[in-house]
Lab assay of single mutants.
Amino acid sequence: MAAGGDHGSPDSYRSPLASRYASPEMCFVFSDRYKFRTWRQLWLWLAEAEQTLGLPITDEQIQEMKSNLENIDFKMAAEEEKRLRHDVMAHVHTFGHCCPKAAGIIHLGATSCYVGDNTDLIILRNALDLLLPKLARVISRLADFAKERASLPTLGFTHFQPAQLTTVGKRCCLWIQDLCMDLQNLKRVRDDLRFRGVKGTTGTQASFLQLFEGDDHKVEQLDKMVTEKAGFKRAFIITGQTYTRKVDIEVLSVLASLGASVHKICTDIRLLANLKEMEEPFEKQQIGSSAMPYKRNPMRSERCCSLARHLMTLVMDPLQTASVQWFERTLDDSANRRICLAEAFLTADTILNTLQNISEGLVVYPKVIERRIRQELPFMATENIIMAMVKAGGSRQDCHEKIRVLSQQAASVVKQEGGDNDLIERIQVDAYFSPIHSQLDHLLDPSSFTGRASQQVQRFLEEEVYPLLKPYESVMKVKAELCL
C-alpha cells in the first residue's frame, strides 16, 4: 500500500493539533497551500530580480507567473513527485505547466533550498508574528487579574506546605514575570531571523556568478533584492546548502521555554482548584465526569500541561538535527523538520489560546482563602504575639514557653481530632496574655502579614508589564474561544 493518505478522510490519521486544537490561522501558515504558494512567490521574486539585473526574462513571463501564483494543481504535483521522487522539481514542473512561456526560467540558477529553506524562514517569521500578540493578550488578562487582587491576602506555599502570606495578585505576578520573559525572547528570536537568500547549491553562489558572467556586484544585488522582497532586513552571508540548523534550535528553545512557563502556571491553577481557592472557567453544560456528576475538573489547565510537556520535548529534535548536518548538509534534517517545526508552533498556539481562555474567566473564592488563612495564621502570628507581650512588660522566655504549650495543644486538636485551630481562643482565655487581649485582632490582621506584596504588584505592572504590552494595544480586544 502506498504511503500517505487522504487526510480529510475519517479513515486516515490526522494530527489532533490540526484537527482538534490549533487555530485556523496557525494551521494555514503550515498548510501545503501556504507552503507551495510561497515557493511560487519566491520563484517570481527571483525572476523579477534577475530581470532587473539584466537576464533575458520578459515582462510577459513575469506576468504569467504572477497570474498563476494561486493556480496550484495539487493532484498534478503529487503525481509528479511520485514520478520524480523530488518535491521541488515536482512543483517546478507543475508551475511550468500553467506558465508555459515562463517554464524555462522558473528556478533559474537556484537549488531546492532556495524555495525550501527560504519558505521555512518566512513561515517561522509569520508563525512567530501570530504567537506574539496571543502571548501579549494572556499577559494582559493576567495583569488585569493581578491588579484587581493585588491586596487580597492568601496563604503562600513553599514545598506545598503553608508559608508566609502573600497576595493573590502577587502570586499571579510570578506567572506574568515568566511570560514577559517569554514574550521578550519570542520577539528577540523573531527579529534575529535572517533570510537564507540566493546562495546556490553549497552556499557559494557559483551558479549565479556564472549567470551574471562573473559580476560579483550583481550577485550581491540579486541576494539583497530577493531578501528585501521577502520582507527581511538581512540575509546570511555564510550558508551551506541550507541555512544553519542552529536557527531551528533557537526558535524551538524559546517555544519550549514558553511551554515550561505555561505548565507551571496551569499546575498552580490545578492545585488551587483542589484547594477550592480558584477555578478555571466551567461552562453551564460542561460535564466533569461521566460517573461523578459533582466533579469540576480543571480540564483546560490539564490540557495545557499535557501539550506543554510535548512542546518542551520537541527542542531535542533540532538539537540532534543540527549535530548531524555533515559538511554542507545531509538530508537527516528533512523529514524531522517537516514534523517538529509545525508541531512546535501548533502546540504553542494551542496552549496560548487555551491559557487566554482560562485567564479571561478565572474565578476566585475569597471566603475559602480566608478560612485557610484562619487555619494557619495563628501559628504564624506567634512571633508577633511574643513581641507584643514583651512590649507590655512580659518575659520573652516565659511567653515563648506559654505559646509553645498552647500551640501544641491547638495542633493536637487540628491533627488528632480534625478540629479547627483554636490557638487564639486559648490565648484569649489565658490570664497571662490579658495585657494584649485587646491587640489580638490587630495582630491577626492578614494584611499585616503580606509585606509589600501589593506595592510590588503595582510597581511591576507599571514599570515592566504595561510598557512591554504597549506595541500590542491594537490587538488586545480579541477574545479566545474554545470549541473543545
Rank of each mutant, 00 (worst) to 15 (best):
G4P: 14
G5M: 13
D6G: 09
G8F: 15
G8C: 15
S9P: 14
P10W: 15
P10E: 14
P24F: 14
E25W: 10
F28E: 07
F28G: 07
F30E: 02
R33L: 10
K35W: 01
T38A: 08
Q41P: 01
L42F: 01
W45P: 02
A47M: 05
E48Y: 04
Q51W: 03
G54Y: 01
L55V: 09
I57S: 03
Q61V: 08
Q63P: 05
E64S: 13
S67W: 10
L69N: 06
L69W: 09
I72D: 07
D73Y: 07
F74I: 15
K75N: 10
K75M: 11
M76V: 13
M76L: 09
E81M: 00
K82D: 14
K82E: 12
H86W: 00
D87T: 00
H93W: 13
G96I: 08
G96Q: 03
G96D: 08
K101G: 11
G104Q: 13
I106E: 00
H107M: 06
G109R: 00
A110G: 14
S112I: 00
C113E: 08
C113P: 04
Y114T: 07
D117E: 05
N118F: 01
T119H: 13
T119Q: 14
D120I: 06
L131A: 13
L131I: 08
K134V: 08
K134Q: 15
L135G: 07
A136D: 05
A136T: 15
R137E: 08
R141H: 14
L142F: 09
F145K: 05
K147A: 14
E148Q: 13
A150Q: 11
L155Q: 03
F157I: 05
F157Q: 06
F157M: 08
T158W: 00
H159F: 02
P162L: 06
T166S: 12
V168I: 09
K170A: 04
Q177E: 15
C180Y: 05
D182K: 00
L183F: 06
R194T: 06
R196E: 10
G197C: 07
K199H: 00
T201M: 00
G203K: 02
F208Q: 05
F208I: 11
L211D: 05
F212T: 07
D215G: 07
D215K: 13
D215E: 13
D216G: 15
H217P: 10
V219L: 14
V219K: 04
V219S: 06
L222R: 00
K224Y: 14
K224L: 12
M225R: 11
M225V: 08
M225G: 08
T227Y: 11
T227P: 06
T227I: 04
A230C: 05
G231W: 05
G231F: 06
G231C: 08
R234A: 12
F236Y: 10
T239R: 01
Q241K: 03
R245M: 01
R245I: 00
L255K: 03
L255A: 08
G259Y: 02
A260T: 01
S261L: 02
K264Y: 04
C266F: 10
C266W: 03
I269D: 00
N274L: 05
L275W: 12
M278D: 03
E279Q: 09
E280Q: 01
P281S: 13
F282I: 13
Q285E: 07
I287R: 02
S289Q: 00
S289P: 00
S290R: 01
S290H: 00
P293C: 05
Y294Q: 07
Y294C: 00
P298L: 03
C304Y: 01
C305F: 03
R309S: 06
H310Q: 06
L311G: 02
L311A: 05
M312G: 03
T313V: 08
L314E: 06
V315R: 05
M316G: 09
P318Q: 04
P318M: 05
P318R: 01
P318T: 07
S323Q: 03
S323E: 03
S323N: 04
W326D: 00
R329N: 02
L331C: 11
L331A: 03
D332I: 00
S334E: 01
A335C: 13
R337Q: 03
L341K: 14
L341I: 13
A342T: 14
A342L: 06
F345K: 02
F345G: 07
L346H: 15
T347E: 08
A348L: 08
D349F: 05
I351W: 01
L355M: 12
L355S: 07
Q356G: 10
I358V: 10
S359G: 12
E360T: 10
G361L: 13
L362N: 05
V364F: 05
V364T: 05
P366T: 10
K367P: 06
I373C: 07
L377W: 03
F379P: 06
M380S: 02
A381F: 06
A381P: 01
I385A: 04
A388H: 04
A392G: 12
G394C: 09
S395A: 09
R396V: 05
Q397M: 09
C399Q: 04
K402A: 07
K402Q: 11
I403R: 01
I403E: 06
R404D: 00
V405F: 14
L406F: 14
Q408R: 11
Q409A: 12
A411V: 09
A411I: 07
A411R: 07
A411Y: 05
V413D: 06
K415P: 04
K415D: 04
G419T: 07
L423E: 05
E425Q: 10
Q428I: 09
Q428A: 15
V429H: 15
D430N: 10
A431V: 11
S434A: 11
S434V: 09
I436W: 04
D441S: 07
H442P: 07
H442M: 15
S447K: 12
S448I: 14
T450P: 03
G451N: 01
A453W: 02
R459F: 09
E463H: 15
E464F: 05
Y466M: 15
P467W: 07
L469G: 04
K470P: 06
S474F: 12
K479Y: 10
A480R: 13
E481M: 14
E481R: 14
C483Y: 06
L484G: 15
L484D: 04
